[in-house]
Design a protein around this nucleic acid. Structure first.
Length: 472
RNA sequence: GGUGGAGUGGCCGAGAGGUUAGGCAGCGGCCUGCAAAGCCGUCCACACGGGUUCGAAUCCCGUCUCCACCUCCA
C-alpha cells in the first residue's frame, strides 16, 4: 500500500513519491500573527500534523517547516491602531498561536522561521527574478518591486486559471505596475510607516510583500525543490499561486505536491473575523478538553468543510470518551508497560487513501468494540491486540490518552492524584462494605457524595474504579 | 464573468454501481441491588426531475440551492 495524496495542482489524488526515498520535506503556511488563533487556524495545523505523524509512522524522516509571517499590512495597521510597536504586536500573537498549537497536541515543526529573519534570502530571490526578467522595480519610484505575471506563461497553473480571466490584484498602488495583475515582491518604505519596518535592499528600503517570505524560507530550509506544501484552501490564490510562480520563475522546482485543507464552517459559512463567527481557542478550551477539540477536528476529512454546531464538541467528547475509556480501562487491567503496537490494516488503508481520518477513526471504534467484548469475556490476547491497535491508531492521530502530551496533562499532579486516590479508595471500601451488607442507602450516599465532588464511580468485575468527571 | 467544491438518516460525518461506514442522540434488551460503563438489537438516509443498468446515493442529462477563491484570510 502506498500513500496517495490529493494534489491541488493536479486536481487529483496521486501516489506520493518523495524526492528522496525515506525523506520528506514539508512546508506548511503558519500564522500571520495579527490576531488571536481560532478553530479554523488550528484545524489546518492539526491536519498537517496528522500528515506528518503518518509519514513518520510509515518510516519517513520528515522535515517540517512552518513559517511565521511576522510582518505584513495588517500587522502594521493593527499595531498602529493598538498603539504598540508592530513587532510587539506580532510577537504577542505569535505566542498565542504557539500556545494554541501546543494545547492541541500539534508537534513542534522542525523549524519555525520568521519572515523578518530572512530578508537576505528574499533580496537574493528578488535579484534572481529581476535578472531573469520576471521582476521589475516600480516605474513610479515608490521602491516597490513587482513580479511580472505576463513574463511567466505558467502563471495560474496551480489554480487552473487563465490570466485573462483574473481580476487585478489590489495589493499595491497600481500606478507603478506594468500589469494590474502583477503582485508586489517588495514594498517600498513609506513615510507613514515605522522606520523599524523597513530593510535595505538594492531597490531601496522597504519590507517584504506577502508571498515572498514563503518562497525564500522554503528555499532556505528545504531547498529549491521539496515534496509537499500545505495550507488552507483560501491560500491557494493568490498566495500559493504567487509563491509557486516566483520560485519557479527564479529557477526553483518548488513543491511537488500541494495540499489544501478545508474550513471550519458555521451555518455553512467559513469562520472568519469579518463574519464575526469565530471561535477562539482559549474560549473553547475553557469549556472543552483540548484532546476533544482535536478529536473533533480529525473527525472529518481534511478536504471537506467541517460544520460546527453547539453540540459538536459535546458529541466529540462522547465519541472520544468511548475510545479513551477502552484504553484506560484496559491499561488498568494489563498494566502500564504494554506499548502501542501496529495500527489495524483498515486504519492504514484509510490513512494511505489521502489521510481518510473518518474511516481511520471508524476502524478504531470497531476495534475498541471488540476490545470491550474481550474485556468482558474474551482472552488476554484478544484484549491486548485491540489495545495495542487502538493506541497505535490514536497515536497517529495525536489522540492517544496515554501518550504525550495528554498523559502529562491530567489536570492534577501525580502527587495530588495519589493523595486523592487514597481518600477515594477509603470511601470506596466503605461503599463496598455497605453493598456487601445490602445497605444500599449508605452505598448510594457514598457514590452521590463523590459524584458531587466531581468523581465518577463505575463498578467493574474487578471492583469499583473512579475517574474525574470529564476524563475517562 | 472565471475557477473549484458541496447538497446523505434527529445531528456530525464516510462512501462512490450490488455488501452494516463510524460516532452522537433516541428507542428496546442484556448486565447491575440501582446506576455508570460495556455489549446486543433497532432507527436503513442519500437536493429535485429524467435517463442508462438486472441493479444508482454512487454513471449520464437537466433543474434548484449553497459555499469557497479571484480583496486580508487556515
Amino acid at each position: 500500500m502506498t500513500l496517495r495524496l490529493h494534489d491541488s495542482a493536479a486536481g487529483a489524488v496521486r501516489d506520493f513519491v518523495p524526492l528522496q526515498p525515506g525523506r520528506v520535506g514539508v512546508y506548511v503556511c503558519g500564522a500571520t500573527p495579527q490576531g488571536s488563533p481560532h478553530l479554523g487556524h488550528v484545524r489546518a495545523q492539526v491536519a498537517f500534523d496528522v500528515l506528518r505523524r503518518w509519514l513518520t509512522a510509515t518510516g519517513h524522516e520528515v522535515t517540517l517547516v512552518r513559517n511565521v509571517t511576522d510582518i505584513d499590512d495588517k500587522i502594521l495597521a493593527k499595531a498602529a491602531e493598538a498603539g504598540v510597536p508592530w513587532w510587539a504586536h506580532a510577537y504577542r500573537f505569535e505566542r498565542d498561536f504557539a500556545a494554541a498549537y501546543d494545547a492541541l497536541g500539534v508537534l513542534p515543526p522542525t523549524v519555525e522561521p520568521r519572515a523578518t529573519g530572512h530578508v537576505p534570502e528574499m533580496v537574493e530571490l528578488i535579484g534572481r527574478l529581476v535578472e531573469r526578467g520576471h521582476a521589475y522595480p516600480a516605474a513610479d519610484g515608490s521602491g516597490d518591486v513587482y513580479f511580472d505575471v505576463r513574463s511567466w506563461p505558467q502563471y495560474g497553473e496551480l489554480t487552473h486559471q487563465d490570466l485573462a480571466d483574473m481580476e487585478p490584484a489590489a495589493d499595491a498602488d497600481p500606478r507603478g505596475k506594468r500589469d494590474p495583475r502583477d503582485f508586489a515582491l517588495w514594498k517600498g518604505a513609506k513615510p507613514t510607516e515605522p522606520a523599524s519596518a523597513s530593510w535595505p535592499t538594492p531597490w531601496g528600503r522597504g519590507r517584504p510583500g506577502w508571498h515572498l517570505e514563503c518562497s525564500a524560507m522554503a528555499g532556505r530550509y528545504l531547498g529549491g525543490r521539496f515534496d509537499i506544501h500545505g495550507g488552507g484552501l483560501d491560500l491557494r490564490f493568490p498566495h500559493h499561486e504567487n509563491e509557486q510562480a516566483q520560485s519557479r520563475a527564479a529557477g526553483d522546482g518548488f513543491a511537488q505536491y500541494w495540499l489544501h485543507n478545508h474550513f471550519v464552517t458555521m451555518a455553512g459559512e467559513k469562520m472568519s473575523k469579518s463574519l464575526g463567527n469565530v471561535l477562539g481557542i482559549p474560549n473553547l478550551l475553557r469549556e472543552h478538553r483540548a484532546v476533544v477539540l482535536r478529536y473533533y477536528l480529525v473527525s472529518a476529512h481534511y478536504r471537506t468543510a467541517l460544520e460546527y454546531s453547539g453540540t459538536s464538541l459535546v458529541e466529540a467528547e462522547a465519541a472520544y470518551s468511548r475510545l479513551e475509556g477502552f484504553v484506560r480501562r484496559t491499561a488498568e487491567r494489563v498494566g502500564p508497560h504494554v506499548a502501542p503496537g501496529e495500527v489495524p490494516a483498515e486504519f492504514a488503508a484509510a490513512m494511505d487513501d489521502d489521510l481518510a481520518t473518518p474511516a481511520a477513526l471508524a476502524s478504531l471504534h470497531e476495534v475498541a468494540r471488540r476490545g470491550n467484548q474481550a474485556l468482558a469475556d474474551g482472552t488476554d490476547e484478544q484484549l491486548l491486540t485491540a489495545y495495542r491497535q487502538v493506541r497505535a491508531g490514536l497515536g497517529v492521530l495525536g489522540l492517544d490518552p496515554l501518550s504525550e502530551p495528554w498523559v502529562s496533562r491530567a489536570g492534577t499532579s501525580d502527587a495530588a492524584r495519589d493523595a486523592l486516590d487514597v481518600l477515594v479508595r477509603a470511601r470506596l471500601e466503605e461503599r463496598a462494605a455497605a453493598r456487601a451488607a445490602r445497605d444500599f442507602a449508605t452505598a448510594d450516599a457514598v457514590r452521590d457524595s463523590l459524584k458531587n465532588a466531581g468523581i465518577v464511580i463505575e463498578d467493574t468485575s474487578t471492583g469499583a474504579r473512579w475517574t474525574l468527571e470529564g476524563e475517562q
